[in-house]
Every structure is written in C-alpha cells, then in structure tokens.
Design a protein around this nucleic acid. Structure first.
Lengths: 225, 225
DNA sequence: GTCTATAGTGGGATAGAC
DNA sequence: GTCTATCCCACTATAGAC
C-alpha cells in the first residue's frame, strides 16, 4: 500500500506530496468533478504527465483522500473513547467522529461516491485495496466494545464489531444523500439506531432470543463478502 | 416521466425508440463504459447531436434501462405471487424475480452502479425521478404482504413494505459486488434473511418485543428520506 | 534508471448552421 | 429536428532530460 508508484527517492516523495496536497485541497474546495487533473498539475507546478506518473489515475488521488480521512477518524476517536465506559456512548463516539471527519466533503459527496464505486477505482469499498481501511474502522469498534463495562454473551462481543462496520458504511451512504441542514437527519438516524441497540442488546440474554439476534448479526457480517 | 425531451411527433418517437433500443442492447452486450454515445448514434443511424437532442446525457439512456427492468420485474412477480399464500414464500418471489431480472447485467454492474449514484444521474436511487420506480417495488411488496394468509399486527403490516424496499436495494447492492458463480452468495443471503424473518415476525406478538421490532422497522423506513 | 514534457487518443457534451 | 464542427475532459505514448 504505497501512495505512489515511485517512492524511491526523496525528491520523488516531495513531488508526490506536493501533488497530493494540491489535489486534496482542490477536492475539499471544488469537489471531484470540478477538480481537473490539468488544474492539479498546474497548481502543483508539474506537467500532466508527471502527475500521472506518480498517480496512475484521478481515482488514485481519491484513495489518498480516503486514507487521510481514515487516519483522522482514528485520531479523533481515541480521545472520544476515553470519555465513557458505557457501551452505547462509546459506539456513539466512533460513529460521530466518523461523520465529523466526513462533513467537509458533504457538498460533493455524491461525486466522490460515484468515483468510489466505479470498477476502475481502487477505493471501491468491496475491493481488496480498501480492506485495510475498513480494518481500521473495525478495530475502532472492537476497542469500543472491549473497553465497555457492559457484559454481553461472548459470541455477541465477537460478532458485533464486524456488523457495526456495515452499519457505519450504510450510515455514510445515507449521509451522502442527506440534504437536511448540517445533515441532521443522519445524526437522528444514528440516535435512533443507538437507542434501539440499547434496548435490543440486553435481550440477547433471553434464551429464546439469543439465536435470532445472533443470526441477525451473522447475516449483517455476511454482507461483507 | 417522459422518456425523451421531445415526444411531440410520431417521427420523433420512432427516432427515440430506435436510439433507445440500440443503446439498451449495447448496454446489455458491452456494459456502460464500453458503450460510447458515438457508437450508439452510428448504429442507430443518427448523429451524435440528434442523440443528445433526444437524450440529454448518456445517463438518461441508463434511466431507460432502469425503467425497463422495473416493468419486467412487475410482470415477472405477478405470476410468482399467485403460487403461494405463505408470507415468506411470497416475499421470496418478489425478491427472487427482482434478482432474476438483474442477472443479464451483472458482468457490468459496478459500471451501472457508478452511473446511477452520480449526481448528474437521473437514476440516483435517492433522487425524485426514481421515486416512481421504487413505488413499483413497494407496491409489489405490499401485494405480497396483503395477499398472505399470515396475520400480523396492523402497524407491522403497514410498515413492512417500506422496510422491504430498503432490504431490496441493499440486496441489489450486495449483488453488484457478488463474485460467486451465478451470484449464489446473494441467493444465500436472501435465504438467510427470509429464514430470520420467519423466526422474527411471529415474535412481534410478544408485548415486550413489539416496540423494539416496530422501532427497527421505522428506522429502516426512515432511511428512505 | 529516474523523472519530465509534449503530443495525441477517444470520450461526453455543446453551439450554431440549416 | 437534425447535422457538422468543436470544446474540454481523463488518460496514454513516447521521446528525451537528469
């Protein structure tokens, strides 16, 4: 998982970094479609050819953005997790910091989504290349679950993080098309989902319900390939 | 919801139809990316300009495909629904005929997905233009629920179809990236989901569980805007 | 061998003549 | 309503500079 095709020399890395920084700033300010590779190259002071030498396609620059967002999520979630021992509050912290990190990109989110799901894209959420990024999110959820004071059945504790990642992806999908101010509807959906979890998780201790709930989690986890 | 921008004269409609048929055949055989508007125009015997006169963008031609798939789903589901009075079997019929109708396009499904989620697209599943298409699917699910011999709490009967549409969209999303032969994993996921429903729906009669299940359905239905 | 500049290809969409 | 000519885009090929 190198960010460029030629990270051998210091000069090359400086060039790569300059292109990447220019591109990411343009993505934030102008979105994906309005950011042309010609403009990135010009602003970074390089030719189009050299840009494509460092990044084989425009989509590869989006992957850089993706990586940066994941890293920021990890750093934002750590202090938020320290604030509480309550399971649901900890899950809320992971979900909320994830949404916070996305918000600068909301105005152009559908463009980025289209770029991400494209078969040409290395950032397609079901592609192998994005597995490490999803692993970061899963580890955040696992940390949230493991560090909580709640005691759940072991098999539930084990299966929950994987299912929560799916929930996170679906929440992000909803967020992309959320036109309410400040994407308030997405936050509301999150609140409702967490409230439901607070009600439903203790039910896992009832023998009659243990199996169906376990099946539901397995089903959701299955949906990741 | 007219299929073209200028359906005034018979000649224009014939031209539109010729372009549409050519495009849809090419989409099936070559996929979205490999189908160029230049090639469609040439095969249909018109210029590129006249193609763009009848269909403002390539994405508008994908919407024609979308509409055709929905109509085919409606026609395929009707006889399948006549086969059983069991609720789960009827739901299976709607889901399965939907997947059947998609299968010719699986090889190029990510391309079509990328085109569909694009902000430039009229087929974006959350856009207003696609609401009628989703209404077709919802009516199929409502027919499946209403015609079943199962008796469920009224508010569940009312809320279920809307939630099932979301399930249908998510199943289709999984299908897009399902690389197993004949997309068998998608069928398996459907089987597991239906089995879970068979277990879970009767639980709605238990007073303690009625609220959480209702909340879950409301949450899923909320996710449609 | 590592890197860069330029010219070129084919794509979707558009303007304006007819 | 239709066509021709053109625009700008992402991406590629390749020759040559360091």
């Amino acid at each position: 998982m190198f960010s460029s095709s030629a990270p051998k020399t210091a000069k090359s890395e400086r060039t790569s970094a300059r292109i990447r920084d220019t591109a990411l700033r343009s993505f934030r300010e102008r979105g994906y479609d309005a950011t042309t590779v010609r403009a990135i190259a010009a602003e970074a002071g390089v030719s189009v050819g050299v840009l494509n030498y460092h990044f084989p396609s425009k989509n590869h620059l989006v992957q850089e953005l993706y990586v940066q967002v994941q890293e920021a999520h990890r750093q934002a979630a750590a202090p938020a997790l320290a604030a509480s021992d309550d399971l649901i509050d900890r899950l809320r912290a992971v979900f909320a910091t994830g949404l916070d990190g996305l918000s600068p990109y909301h105005a152009h989110a559908p463009e980025f989504l289209a770029a991400a799901v494209s078969p040409r894209s290395p950032v397609n959420p079901f592609a192998e290349d994005s597995a490490p990024a999803l692993a970061i999110v899963e580890s955040l959820f696992r940390e949230a679950v493991d560090g909580a004071d709640t005691t759940l059945p072991d098999e539930l504790t084990a299966a929950l993080p994987r299912a929560l990642v799916v929930g996170h992806l679906l929440l992000a999908l909803f967020w992309v098309y959320d036109r309410s101010p400040q994407q308030r509807k997405t936050r509301l959906l999150l609140d409702h989902g967490l409230r439901l979890l607070r009600t439903a998780l203790p039910l896992a201790r009832i023998p009659l319900l243990r199996r169906p709930l376990q099946d539901l989690l397995a089903l959701i986890a299955d949906a990741r390939g």
